[in-house]
Design a protein around this nucleic acid. Sequence first.
DNA 1: TAACTTTGGTTACCAAAAGTAAGTAAAAAA
DNA 2: TTTTTTACTTACTTTTGGTAACCAAAGTTA
Lengths: 123, 123
Amino acid sequence: METKKNDKFSNVEDCPIRNIIDRIGDKWSVLVLLVLEEEGTLRFNEIHKTIQSISQKMLAVTLKALEADGLVKRTVYPQIPPKVEYELTERGSSLLPHLHGLVSWAVGNMEAIQTSRREFEVS
Amino acid sequence: METKKNDKFSNVEDCPIRNIIDRIGDKWSVLVLLVLEEEGTLRFNEIHKTIQSISQKMLAVTLKALEADGLVKRTVYPQIPPKVEYELTERGSSLLPHLHGLVSWAVGNMEAIQTSRREFEVS
DNA sequence: TAACTTTGGTTACCAAAAGTAAGTAAAAAA
DNA sequence: TTTTTTACTTACTTTTGGTAACCAAAGTTA
């Protein structure tokens, strides 16, 4: 008999791993976090210029999600034309070292991985 | 004048960050890697029993991707009914410490993040 | 006075990725 | 002969992501 209790990953809502993967596992969050770390406080369009391949829509969606999770702080200056600045919160900063671990692994292994992929395709 | 050279993330194909995020940032890869680390060698259905919320299709797709990247080794025993075993490769094992960094951060911050999300919703 | 610029978005529409449920192969057991 | 077992695949639906056009509101230009 297989009860839910035998599956330690059954409660997807409360599984921290799935929770974090669902959030930073999207297409853009990690890139935005890394850019904000490197460049400091940035306006919407400045982020967009740094990550040209993201659409305005996805940048807006990504920033809103990061803000909702308290990883990024959004500051609106009531001007016309509008001015909105984004910066990492402490919580966002505390995540970054772990991302850097991943990034360094990725940098060190990317070439071998790309080779593996090509070999796998032909077979 | 904005040339491609001003955007250090413009070559999405060759950006290691995007590369690794695209691969382990999918919904299931990290979970599968963690299960294989914890349980050792497992058959297809054994993984499926451990991660009940994944569909057979997505488990198959995920394993194939991990195999293509050389993170997981697939061994087929020519029997009927079939027997296929999956285990981490060295490359896969070398990635896991970095994932654990993320996991521990996720465990430590999940509650605060969930609170932030609820607060963000109402405002 | 009308049109254009600037910024930080939103909206409608389309494509790609992921989820669901059912089907498949092949042999051994009932 | 039907059922069982295992590791998938296939057809279909839903969710996510991408593209391009549009918007507000004040200042600048003509």
